[in-house]
């Protein structure tokens, strides 16, 4: 990475005057009209290297993605036989996923878990955040600190106990057990996030409604909820996505083949050394990655906005 860093430095030096996105570039050069020609030549060379850097990085960013897509269309099975440009393309691995494996079942399992997790955690996060943001009551600061500290615990510490608890409640190897674990884990972080958003809503609005005789429940339903759609969308989508990615908790809770989720199924295909099912894994990976990536690109706008707002508060 050494080269890219030095090139990057040069790029900064040459272009920093435009960091604030200045559309009228001409005004930046005006203070030194005599040196203009010289700067232009130097600037061109620097820009040439910057474009090379950008192109190399773009290839690096795309290559693994392209490679996995092409692998999934490769006729062979194993890792060593898969090439970037296969001699012929085939969709056989996609159909194999459904014939040789229960890919459809895994998909439905994951979808079910994801939808339930999303619903449950959104409800829990919203009401918790609402209570913590809009009310001043005894134990509030304590609750905030506790939530902050709890989310710092490594979750393996709780794994054995969660396993035993679910075993006792007959929720082991059940999707509902997993949903409970996910939703419980989503509360502390999510509530902090949404609470920050609620805090930003001017207090005069709910107060005015209160003077007009609205109850706390009405204020919550008619004012706070509609005003915080962006953050709620964010929480909902991120909790929807999480179960598609997680395999640690899923592996702990789900035991039988019929309950498997996509993450477990895919991991098991490539965890061996020889990877003789590599192309099938590639096909599965593409089928998971496409919808999640699309969702993510949609989600990303909220994320940057939310985090930028959080950062500007500091």
């Amino acid at each position: 990475m050494k080269t890219s860093d030095t090139q990057g430095q040069a790029g900064i030096a040459a272009n920093a005057d435009g960091t604030g996105i200045a559309p009228d570039a001409g005004s930046n050069v005006s203070p030194a009209p005599k040196r203009k020609k010289h700067i232009d030549i130097r600037g061109r060379i620097v820009r040439f290297f910057i474009y090379i850097l950008l192109a190399v990085t773009a290839v690096t960013s795309i290559y693994p993605i392209l490679w996995i897509v092409m692998s999934s269309l490769n006729p062979g099975n194993a890792l060593y036989s898969s090439t970037l440009i296969p001699k012929r393309l085939t969709l056989v691995h996609y159909s194999e996923l459904f014939i040789k494996r229960d890919f459809g079942l895994w998909y439905m399992n994951t979808l079910k878990i994801a939808v339930l997790t999303m619903l449950l955690s959104v409800v829990l996060v919203i009401i918790t955040a609402y209570a913590l943001s809009q009310f001043r009551f005894k134990g509030r600061r304590f609750s905030l600190m506790t939530m902050l500290i709890l989310q710092a615990f490594p979750n393996f510490m709780s794994m054995i106990a969660i396993y035993l608890l679910l075993l006792q409640l007959n929720l082991l190897d059940s999707h509902y057990g997993l949903v409970l674990v996910y939703a419980g884990g989503a509360i502390p972080g999510g509530a902090w996030l949404v609470k920050g958003y609620f805090d930003g809503i001017p207090r005069s609005i709910p107060e005015a409604a209160k003077i007009d005789g609205a109850s706390s429940a009405t204020i919550f339903r008619k004012i706070m909820m509609p005003m915080s759609t962006p953050i709620l969308t964010f929480v909902a989508l991120s909790n929807f996505i999480a179960p598609w990615m997680d395999f640690i908790m899923a592996r702990l809770v789900l035991r039988s083949a019929a309950k498997k989720t996509l993450a477990i199924g895919l991991y098991e295909m490539v965890s061996g050394r020889m990877n003789t099912e590599f192309t099938m894994f590639a096909a599965g990976a593409v089928m998971v990655a496409v919808p999640i990536t699309v969702l993510f690109v949609f989600l990303q706008r909220f994320m940057i906005q939310g985090l930028a707002e959080g950062a500007s508060k500091t």
Binding site: T128, L150, F153, M157, I187
Partner: peptide, 19 residues
């Protein structure tokens, strides 16, 4: 706060105390 407290108690506090 009750639901959040119940969830946190059983899925986080009990397991962590145990840990």
């Amino acid at each position: 706060l009750t639901p959040a407290v119940v969830f946190t108690l059983f899925l986080t506090v009990v397991p962590l105390t145990f840990g």
